[in-house]
Design a protein around this nucleic acid. Structure first.
Lengths: 136, 136
DNA sequence: TTTAGACTCATACTAAAGTACCAAATGACT
DNA sequence: AGTCATTTGGTACTTTAGTATGAGTCTAAA
């Protein structure tokens, strides 16, 4: 936010200076009116692009935030969620077990729990549902 | 593409007209130079914003557009891709077979082909890879 | 100090998924 | 006419995945 204010203030100052300069140049007859207008047009064209880019960057990222509330609502525990992440990464139960230092049996238990909680029949369906619920 | 050209041409024409008008207004002394410049500045500011939005809409949505070239590069056939979509929707081989009016054997063949082409060991990994390659 | 929830693991299954081959029909291209 | 890629399917087999059930540990709360 502080940065934005700084950028905008310096922008305004620069523009004011530019106006004064262009006015002086016109009065002293060193510059044609068309060129002045063209320069201003180009300048503001890019200012518009710049401002627009700055303001657009923020409302775009939030598409990727995970819904923590939903996870709690579904009563998905920490371990279960870790297993879900493993599934999303394309790991087998054995691989997930190795990564979490657990036995494959334990992973199977968690997977079964997840399938019930997500109302899915398969891990791939669990992924699809988890994505639609934005919990992954 | 045709639309873009049309918009730009009409934009250029409008600008040329505006330039002529502003010059006339200045010569006839009906308008002050500062006002003219201010109008031009504001106009181009918004033109810049508009153009930017137009041109940004394409590189932004493409986060969700599938990479057809990649699909061809990987030599994934139509049927194989349809099966991949079925997997992404969380369906079992049998369910995919029913939806495509094929036997489960055939689906298995396609799945195996997909796994080779996507260099994956499991269907879940295939999904993860397919997503990272933006082909799904 | 019970109690409930989360975490852990095991056994014994059944059901999917996946592999390795093979084979035949089709359609486009040479 | 012959080649090539695609599509389709089958058999036999191995490997994962998933279910059902039971049980032990630990911790925080009632």
């Amino acid at each position: 936010m502080k940065k934005t204010i700084l950028i905008f203030s310096s922008l305004i100052i620069a523009l004011l200076l530019f106006f004064q300069l262009s006015k002086y140049a016109l009065i002293s007859g060193n510059m044609k009116i068309e060129i002045t207008i063209a320069i201003i047009a180009i300048l503001f064209f890019f200012v518009g692009i710049y401002i627009n880019k700055k303001s657009l960057r923020k409302p775009l990222n939030p598409n990727y935030s995970i819904d923590q509330k939903k996870i709690q609502e579904l009563e998905i525990t920490t371990r279960e969620y870790e297993v879900l992440e493993g599934i999303a990464s394309g790991f087998s139960n054995k691989e997930i077990a190795e990564k979490l230092f657990l036995s494959e049996s334990t992973i199977k238990t968690y997977v079964s729990n997840l399938l019930v909680k997500l109302n899915a029949k398969r891990r791939t369906q669990a992924l699809q549902i988890a994505k639609s619920l934005q919990i992954i």
